[in-house]
């Protein structure tokens, strides 16, 4: 998105690891927010207006907001002690098509920084950066973070993302009456910053339903990679939400239309992963498509839903005709 998300290194130091999380869900409204209302709603800070696109899918991005951090970073079992980090996390809300809300949070990790906690002004001047006061291996931090937070002493950016989403529940433009039950989607990502190295990535889905993306990449591509993760999170959520609606429509004692109609009207038109995909990430997306076939799965799920709706409609018509005859 438009707002620059490049690495900040005022001290000339560069982060070796960048960690992030994207949470995705339905905005708590019965209908999508019109662009104007969305721009008002996402003005999370006074004095700064959100960035936005109109084509091909409306998208509004809030200004960055910051969260103070002083916690441990997870490392894999056997990798020694967890380093303590201090600083701030950066987060933003992204609203797509007026209806799909994401909380996107990240931190840049500076290793080999100061050995003790400094006065807060030091960290306030390096927004979005945490400094580790113990030694750590970047590869361990990537692996550790992608395990997911197991307790409340280690960094949990997914919760930060969820908090950013919850800020949008409080704005007056929200009527709190969505017609579709959905679950929040979660994605964790971790970058091992490697200048000049051959970029290398892995997208993984585990049985907790959380997507994990690991990448080694030069620092210049970080902003594009963040956008890639936000786009992946959004489309994975779309797929999960549609499948959830379909599954719910088969439940005992339920009117299938009650699930399928809102699912189609809320989600049916939304699939367009390449809409805002940065140029540099097209290759990566293509590879992911080749293997995971997300677009194929989406299309077939939509077809299934539409088929079921037509069958139900036909049945309803036949029943009505039958009644008339009788």
């Amino acid at each position: 998105m438009a707002r620059p998300v490049g690495p900040s290194d005022p001290g000339g130091q560069r982060p070796q690891v960048v960690l992030g999380a994207v949470t995705t869900g339905l905005l708590n409204t019965s209908e999508p927010l019109p662009l104007e209302a969305a721009r008002q709603a996402l003005a999370l800070l006074p004095g700064v207006s959100p960035d936005w696109h109109r084509h091909p899918i409306e998208q509004v991005v809030s200004p960055d907001i910051f969260f103070g951090l002083d916690c441990r970073l997870a490392v894999p079992p056997g990798a020694g002690s967890q380093p303590r980090v201090i600083g701030t996390a950066r987060a933003r809300a992204v609203l797509t098509a007026g209806h799909i809300l994401q909380g996107s949070a990240r931190v840049e990790v500076l290793l080999d920084a100061n050995r003790r906690r400094l006065p807060w002004a030091h960290y306030a001047a390096r927004t979005g950066v945490v400094e580790a006061i113990n030694r750590a291996d970047p590869a361990d931090l990537v692996t550790g973070f992608l395990q997911g937070a197991v307790n409340s002493t280690v960094l949990d950016l997914g919760k930060t993302g969820a908090y950013v989403m919850s800020l949008l529940d409080r704005v007056p433009q929200i009527d709190r009456q969505p017609r579709l039950k959905t679950e929040t989607g979660r994605l964790l990502w971790a970058v091992h910053v490697q200048d000049g190295a051959e970029p290398d990535s892995l997208v993984e889905l585990r049985d907790d339903g959380m997507l994990r993306v690991r990448i080694g990449t030069p620092a210049e591509l970080l902003p594009q990679f963040v956008e890639f993760c936000e786009i992946l999170a959004l489309h994975h959520w779309l797929l999960s939400a549609l499948r959830n609606a379909f599954e719910r429509s088969n439940r005992r004692g339920r009117r299938p239309e009650g699930e399928l109609d809102p699912a189609l009207s809320y989600l049916g038109h939304m699939w367009n992963p390449e809409a805002h995909l940065p140029h540099e990430m097209r290759g990566l997306w293509q590879r992911l498509e080749n293997e995971a076939q997300l677009t194929w799965e989406w299309k077939s799920t939509v077809t299934r839903v539409r088929d079921k709706v037509s069958l139900l409609t036909r049945k309803a018509i036949e029943e009505a005709l039958h009644k008339e005859v009788v």
């Binding site: 339905l26 708590n28 919850s166 529940d169 709190r176 039950k181 959905t182 679950e183």
Partner: peptide, 12 residues
Amino acid sequence: AELFQTVEREFD
């Protein structure tokens, strides 16, 4: 109130 809202978005 926020908690109830959040949970109701996902659960019947």
